[in-house]
Nucleic acid binder design. Structure first.
Length: 240
DNA sequence: CCCTGATTCGC
DNA sequence: GCGAATCAGG
């Protein structure tokens, strides 16, 4: 199967969309996961949180000026980093360290169950500013050695606060509400603000309520009565 | 075991 | 350029 423009486009979209190579390969069909990955790299797409990416590229100040020593001798040479910076001139105070004092005052956490009555626009001050690494159109940002931004931005000093239950989610069945006794039929799509679950009592023995069991379990029809939907490239129509 | 992406290397 | 084989972390 050749890499037609169409298939490449699909690959590119899905890859940038965060789909895994396996998913992409399955969607494309006729190609393996490896083929997808290989192609993605060749396309210049790259760098996506890999589970196996060595995180080093630094941490070593190239302390290996000595010629290679074929003979490790008996005792392995201990790490000779020798951070002797004796004649090191005191580095000028670059950017003032963004020290953030830890405020002693406690932040009242509102984790109580919400009756949905008092749901105002209570927006806590912290504006975390998502650090989501967006991928620019047309490809990846190849990380060059020395491009590290490690030393900067120490850490978000803000304390973490439980996600605020949004007003429009009041009364909705969320992921945390799921149990064996309520219908797990999803409504909406994950990531969307109003994504929730059906939540009605289940049809005993099934994960869904009676109605949704009707959607989930279709009676086998004679072939002549089936209406096989046309194969969609991927990302079928959204059903609500 | 399964999954993942990265890399290599013969074709 | 392609992708199976291999590697390596989760």
């Amino acid at each position: 199967m050749a890499w037609t423009d169409e298939r490449i486009e699909t690959l590119r979209k899905m890859w940038e969309d965060g789909q895994t190579a396996s998913q992409i390969a399955e969607a494309l069909g006729q190609v393996s996961r490896n083929a997808v990955i290989g192609k993605a790299h060749r396309l210049g797409l790259q760098s996506r949180p890999s589970p196996v990416k060595p995180n080093d590229a630094e941490a070593k100040a190239k302390p290996v000026p000595v010629a290679v020593e074929p003979k490790p001798a008996a005792a392995a040479p201990p790490p000779p980093p020798a951070p002797k910076v004796e004649a090191a001139p005191p580095a000028p105070p670059k950017v003032a360290a963004p020290v953030v004092e830890d405020e002693p005052e406690d932040i009242e956490d509102e984790i109580e169950e919400d009756d949905g009555a008092d749901e105002g626009g209570v927006v806590p001050a912290p504006k975390p500013q998502p650090i989501l690494r967006s991928i620019g159109p047309g490809g990846f940002l190849r990380q060059a050695p020395g491009e590290q931004q490690a030393p900067s931005t120490p850490a978000p000093p803000r304390r973490l606060v439980p996600a605020k239950p949004s007003a429009d989610m009041a009364g909705k069945t969320t992921l945390l509400d799921l149990s064996d006794k309520i219908c797990k039929w999803p409504l909406g799509h994950p990531g969307e603000p109003d994504f929730h679950f059906c939540g009605r009592p289940v049809n005993p023995g099934f994960p869904y309520c009676v109605d949704h069991c009707g959607h989930a379990y279709q009676a086998q029809l004679p072939r002549r009565d089936r209406r096989p939907p046309p194969p969609l490239p991927f990302g079928g129509p959204r059903v609500r």
